[in-house]
């Protein structure tokens, strides 16, 4: 029985873990890209360059160390026995104009939950970990690829050619895009021209994703009284209906029972049952265990657990009555 239980539990957990892997999505997303920057965002060295913003849409900090950003799809040949990660590592060293590996040990590459990180596409890696090893060509269509530390594709975006200076190609809602068969959803992206309604927002949210319900309650019920009254009424109503239903069931059960002893108090009946008899109810066992726990604080190795074993053996079979008890190792 125990083996079956363990196998069933292991199967359930395995199912949950496999489901997690199957459903797993990397939580970093390309969020906004500017290809020509002559009067917009200035980097920490006081220079202007094209930039690529990535959004961490998870609720945990993500370290981007050893991830890869490429301006061309890098696919490991099937004949190459190495892991994709090792292939990308070598590729980044040989072709820095295509693939940039984010270096280790730089705190700037940690992305806090629900925040953005901005990389500068200026080909100047000496300026820091946030500077890509290549620049973008604004006169052509650019496609950017984000690979995780294992070399798996996380996200991809294609930026149209000839975007006017200081305008960006950005997600309509921060982080809201998914790859389907490694293809991006182009409808999730739009141009931002820098006007008030379509502002360029490096390092900030493109749009504020408001929950209408929350805004409504925040505005119309600032003290919470309305929601409290409604919610309490619903909770009471649900449990009141259950009460009425089971009150009626109880009455019907009591009336329908031919055996009068059924209607007598359960505790009185239980009390008449000898606890030591083989057929004693589990409730009696529980009551005895509880009394022992309450008054003597008796319990097994784990607190709150007191094992109570029924002894259905006779003097012929009971191990405790045997002459030769097994030696106990101390």
């Amino acid at each position: 029985m125990n083996t079956k239980r363990i196998l069933l539990s292991v199967a359930l957990v395995a199912l949950a873990v496999f489901t997690s892997v199957a459903q797993g999505r990397k939580d970093l997303r390309f969020n906004e890209v500017m290809t020509v920057n002559d009067s917009s965002y200035i980097d920490t060295n006081g220079h202007r360059a094209a930039w690529v913003e990535i959004f961490n849409r998870s609720y945990g900090t993500v370290g981007m160390e050893q991830m890869f950003i490429a301006n061309k799809e890098v696919v490991k040949p099937e004949s190459d026995p190495r892991k994709p990660k090792d292939y990308l590592n070598e590729y980044a060293v040989k072709h820095p104009d295509v693939l940039y590996e984010i270096p280790r040990g730089d705190r700037d590459t940690k992305v806090a939950p629900r925040t953005h990180i901005v990389f500068y596409a200026d080909g100047n890696t000496a300026a820091g970990a946030l500077h890509l090893s290549y620049a973008l060509d604004p006169s052509h269509e650019n496609t950017l690829y984000l690979y995780d530390v294992n070399g798996d594709l996380v996200d991809k975006v294609t930026i149209p050619a000839n975007i006017p200076a200081n305008q960006t190609w950005a997600l309509k809602v921060d982080g809201k895009s998914e790859l389907t068969d490694n293809q991006e959803d182009k409808t999730a992206w739009s141009m931002r021209d820098g006007t008030d309604k379509s502002a360029v927002t490096p390092g900030k949210f493109n749009t504020t994703d408001l929950n209408d319900n929350i805004e409504k309650f925040h505005k119309h019920d600032p003290s919470g009284i309305i929601i409290t009254l409604c919610a309490v009424a619903i909770v009471f109503l649900a449990l009141l209906l259950l009460f009425i239903l089971f009150y009626i069931f109880g009455k019907l059960n009591t009336m329908g029972s031919n055996d009068k002893t059924e209607a007598e108090p359960a505790l009185a009946k239980i009390a008449d049952t000898p606890a030591s008899s083989a057929g004693a109810d589990d409730e009696v066992m529980a009551a005895i265990c509880f009394a022992l726990y309450q008054h003597l604080n008796a319990h097994d190795q784990e607190s709150g657990v007191l094992t109570f074993r029924r002894d259905n053996n006779t003097a012929w079979s009971a191990k405790s009555s045997l002459m030769r008890a097994l030696p106990e190792r101390r």
Binding site: G250, N253, S257, E262, A263, E264, P265, A266, L267, K269
Partner: peptide
Amino acid sequence: MKPARKVS
């Protein structure tokens, strides 16, 4: 409180 009745 009154002891509980037996529940079927």
